[in-house]
């Protein structure tokens, strides 16, 4: 069993389609909707937790992207473990969102979660596994 928490964006032409139903029926996936909104421009935004066999999950997500559904891991689940961080700053230039901020006096970094877009780049860059991304 694999679990993924994603932010899905549906373009207007897909909003009325029974896509989640198909994911459940055709790919044998479990879908837990954590949040659902339709924006003023009628773009649908779903925050979901999808779980199922790893292969099935891959196929299901593939199906979604072929349909033109935008996907992004859930940003809330990027964790910075301060106790493991040695404040080397290696992650700073890699972060496209500027989520790591360096205090130039103390030379200590801090993590501004609100800015993070959960791209995962910093996770690979940190030699001390101080950043964790939970999908």
């Amino acid at each position: 069993m694999t679990k993924k928490r994603l932010v899905l964006r549906f373009p207007p032409e897909l909003v009325e389609q029974p896509i989640t139903y198909q994911l459940i029926r055709d790919y044998d996936l479990m879908i837990n909707i954590l949040q659902a909104t339709v924006t003023p421009r009628e773009e649908g935004r779903l925050v979901v937790e999808i779980s199922g066999e790893r292969k099935a999950l891959e196929k299901g997500l593939n199906y979604l992207s072929q349909l033109g559904v935008g996907m992004q891991p859930l940003a809330q689940d990027v964790l910075w473990h301060q106790d493991k961080c040695i404040h080397c700053t290696a992650c700073i230039p890699l972060c496209p969102a500027g989520a790591f901020v360096l205090d130039r006096e103390k030379h200590l970094i801090s993590f501004e979660k609100e800015r993070c877009i959960a791209c995962g780049l910093c996770v690979r860059a940190c030699p001390y596994k101080a950043i964790e991304i939970l999908f």
Binding site: H87, C88, T89, A90, C91, I92, P93, H107
Partner: peptide, 8 residues
């Protein structure tokens, strides 16, 4: 970016 920690 650094690899060694100035703070430490």
């Amino acid at each position: 970016g650094g690899l060694s920690s100035y703070a430490r």
